[in-house]
Every structure is written in structure tokens, then in C-alpha cells.
Design a protein around this nucleic acid. Structure first.
Lengths: 130, 130
DNA sequence: GGCAATACGGACCAATTTGTCCCTATCCGA
DNA sequence: TCGGATAGGGACAAATTGGTCCGTATTGCC
């Protein structure tokens, strides 16, 4: 497991949230667990772009952070389920609000993201076309 | 400027928000601008851990993403101010809610973050002490 | 003149995160 | 017996992000 060399800033609430929610897929994983997709294989089908390796890593972090609980059923083939802890549950309204904001503004967001990528690629002339 | 090699997933609202809010300091920068700290030098004093270089980069991205507007005053010494756009403004209630959640749970968050870091460092025995 | 404050940004390196490849294990069904 | 489903994880590589160092410019103050 990777060990941080730079100690994180933990001054205010926003810093702290950043530490536990930072991760390319974490918010979506929490959301899908909330929706009842509890098994790793189910989660991976819901989020095909994530690899099993990274899914495991991020779930492990969220388990350490007490956002989810892992239950291993001693059956064959293996069965594992993740559920939200009470603590993780308190994040759901926030995640819902964030997703809603994103959905409401999705056209604009898509446009500015593509525009920025075009600028970064040195093709700002395309920025007007997207 | 860095050009992405992996095209981002932009399926749902959560993906889109991630694209524009991902960045170690972005949420805090937005929050401080909201609080009236408009000049880069002010922002840097509020967030000493960020370097001017990175502050500029993240502000530039948020400008491309239409969350903030940059105003250059043609005076000497130079004066620059960033303000929230109407679009950026709509994020403020969300950021406020996130910060509030973090503040409310800050003791627990601090504890689990330190615990996770101890586990990652291979010293889980310390995990009970933090 | 020398120094501080203001602000910008290129070149390059370091840290961190994410992804790929490979191997383990068990049971079921064709 | 072989392939597929389930789940886990080490070693390593690639991508991405963040940071350091340096150089540019102008004005005002001592």
C-alpha cells in the first residue's frame, strides 16, 4: 500500500472531506452501494471503466475510513457484500445533491470540460466549436 | 499544459462534477473567493500550503470551466481579481454543505484518516491509539 | 541602486493515483 | 477436464497531479 510522504493539510472540514472522498470513483461507488449494488462484481458491472484492482483498493480505503462495512460470506464461490455504515449513510444526501447539480448542468459542464481539454491540447480554435 | 491521454468518463452528473471539482485545492479556492478573497496574493495567504504556481494552474482551469472570471487591472503593481461566475455561484450551497458535514464530523474524520494512514504504513497496532 | 510587492509561466522533477499483468483458490456445469 | 463465476492481491508501469526552481516585468520606497 502506498504510504504518503507529504502529510495532508487537515485544517478545516473541507480538507477532511477531501481526504476521504478523493478518489476517482469513490463517490460513484458509494452511490451505487446506496442503490443496493452491494457485491464487487455488481459494482464493476455498474462502473465498467474501473478495474477490479482499483475497485478493491478504493473499497478498502473507504472501509478504513468507516464509510462502508465489508461482509465476507464463507461460501463457495466467494460472496462479499459492502454496505454503508451509519457514518457513510450521512454522506448520501450530499452525494445526491452533487449528482443533482451535475445532472441539472450537464450540458454546460460537458461543453466547458471539452473546451478546456481543447485549450489544454493547444487547439483553442476548436474551443468555440464544441 | 498537460493533455489527457485517457478520455474521462462523462456519463452521469457525478462524473461531470468530478471533472471540474477535482483538484487538491479547488473547493477551498472557490470558498475563499466566495468569502471575498479575490486576489491571488490574498488567496495564497489564506491557503499557505498551496504554491503560487499551482494556484495559478487551478484558477486557470476553473476559468476555463466558467466557474470564475479573471479581471486584470492595467495598473502597476499588477492587480488581478477573480470572482465567481453565476455558474460558480450555484456551487456555493453545495460546498457549504460539504464543509459543514466535514466540520460536524471532524473528530471522527481526523481519527479515521490517521488510522488509515497508520494501516497503510504497516503499523496497524498504532491504529488503535490515534 | 537594491529590495519588496504584484503577477505570469516554462522546464523539469516528485508524489500520488490509477491501471495492467499475472497468479491464487474453489465450486459448478457443460 | 476445461471454462467461467466469485474474490484477492503482489509487482510493476503509466497517467495525472502537484511542486520546485528559475526567469520575466513594473513601480515605489529607502
Amino acid at each position: 500500500m502506498y504510504v504518503k510522504k507529504i502529510v495532508p493539510t487537515l485544517n478545516c472540514g473541507l480538507d477532511l472531506v477531501g481526504e476521504v472522498l478523493y478518489g476517482k470513483w469513490k463517490i460513484r461507488i458509494l452511490w451505487f452501494i446506496h442503490q443496493g449494488h452491494l457485491r464487487p462484481s455488481e459494482l464493476q458491472r455498474k462502473i465498467p471503466d474501473i478495474t477490479r484492482r482499483v475497485l478493491n483498493v478504493q473499497l478498502k480505503e473507504m472501509e478504513d475510513h468507516e464509510l462502508v462495512t465489508k461482509t465476507i460470506y464463507p461460501v463457495m464461490p466467494p460472496k462479499v457484500e459492502y454496505t454503508l455504515t451509519d457514518f457513510g449513510q450521512t454522506l448520501i444526501p450530499l452525494i445526491g445533491a452533487i449528482g443533482l447539480w451535475g445532472d441539472e448542468h450537464q450540458d454546460r459542464l460537458r461543453r466547458v470540460i471539452l473546451k478546456h481539454n481543447a485549450i489544454a491540447a493547444g487547439k483553442p480554435e476548436n474551443a468555440e466549436l464544441v
